[in-house]
Design a binder for these strands. Structure first.
Lengths: 251, 251
DNA sequence: CAGTGGTCTAGACCACCAA
DNA sequence: TGGTGGTCTAGACCACTGA
């Protein structure tokens, strides 16, 4: 965990930018000579060792951080990341969003005006109200994601006030599960965390995140929508498609 | 599409880095004053207009490109991106990987030694052989992804040689579908495109991609694995979960 | 060929963390 | 308080595109 060769790297391809060759060298080094949690030399030393400007070295480190191979912390240092965490999306999710509260922390649960982006999918009527439950999701004591559930008042008329957030959330989810789920649709895309979102994920703004948007249908309409945001560097989204019985014969 | 205000931006938050405020300003501008395909002023002009160094402006543009809001082309210019393309993962995929060849182009189909990463999942025995089919996926005449399917020789003993790639692929897929699919597992994660991958996707190395790994079970074993790579900037992965019948009652 | 984005440098200062 | 990563600058040169 100390050597870290500096040779021009026999595998270097001319015509490829320096920062990319550098990334490749570093990747090889952390695979071979380092373990999860090991601390890398600081950026100024590394840059000097490879004979490049600090900015060039940083470009390489940024790539590796995006790939989830490094963790950089301001003021502290750069360490080798552990393997990605599997976030299961389908185990309890064969139906309505999880009431299952393990590894979940309620941030708040309230009735709010719909955001523009959901005005059409959720209710149509602008300036209407919806219930919003925000939760933080953990895995191995680590924050991995932020989940925001919007529920139409057509399926859950009103929220009990005067009870703590946590109970209000439980009651809402119970009412939701009272309905028969008629359909579900999911989409995954890449985004970057805005300021507030980033704070909840304990990351700087601009961090790459995987956004999972799930639409739930009940009573012949869109009953709820969840927007779940996961740290792209540390998470792998696992869609466990239950057992054999869930699969249909090829058409 | 011409103005692009330069004011310090009344919404600017002190304490936030310049490049982030800049990103916010630019995002607002492209939402309000630009349409898909519009060309932005060049980087040197933009930097001057906002009174920052070119590197700082570029930092902001990089964020917006990662978010899929801008398309930058070396030598050409920077344009405003269109909406993301929905890539359906589940329509034909309720079972084996698609034989459906619309919007798919066969790159090659051959029997090759297993890669280390699949040695355990696919066959266990090192230096064993598997069949590999590589295809490029299009949507709206645009390259959106690269699909690599590995098939164990336990389910498809041998490939017909002496026929074109395309036919060889068809025959292999037909044999695959002959088996009863017993289970499937999917995972999605973020990665960056390596050199070769990047070429197929018509992007520079280091481009962010969404990797979908699907494992197929048949004959009581892992029969096949596909690794599909999609451009993270232009794609949204849609998991259409068929109709109501596919859903089970809440347990 | 002129103009664009892409790479790289050398240096400065700042914000943060841990000892 | 010293060392870390984060931000920003000003300038240079290169690789590519399109007229």
């Amino acid at each position: 965990m100390s050597s870290m060769a500096t040779m021009p790297d026999e595998t270097a391809v001319f015509g490829e930018p320096k920062y990319w060759q550098l990334r490749t060298s570093l990747l090889k080094a952390i695979d071979e000579d380092f373990n999860s949690g090991d601390i890398l030399p600081n950026e100024r030393d590394l840059a000097a060792r490879f004979g490049v400007a600090r900015a060039t070295l940083r470009h390489a480190l940024e790539q590796l951080e995006l790939e989830g191979r490094l963790v950089r912390k301001r003021g502290a240092g750069t360490t080798v990341a552990g393997p990605r965490v599997d976030v299961s999306l389908g185990a309890d999710g064969e139906g309505w969003p999880g009431v299952d509260l393990r590894d979940r922390e309620v941030i708040d649960c309230a009735t709010v005006p719909v955001t523009d982006e959901f005005a059409d999918t959720l209710k149509g009527r602008p300036s209407a109200l919806v219930h919003r439950l925000r939760r933080r999701q953990f895995s191995m004591r680590q924050v991995v994601g932020l989940e925001c559930l919007y529920v139409s008042r057509a399926v859950v008329p009103s929220l009990s006030t005067r009870v703590p957030n946590f109970e209000r959330a439980s009651l809402m989810l119970r009412q939701l599960r009272g309905h028969r789920l008629e359909g579900r649709h999911r989409a995954v895309e890449l985004a970057v965390a805005e300021a507030e979102e980033a704070r909840y994920l304990e990351r700087p703004p601009g961090t790459a995140v995987l956004v999972v948007t799930t639409t739930y249908t009940a009573l012949g309409r869109t009953a709820a929508v969840t927007v779940a945001t996961y740290r792209a560097d540390t998470c792998r989204l696992a869609f466990a498609e239950a057992g054999p019985t869930a699969l249909r014969p090829a058409s």
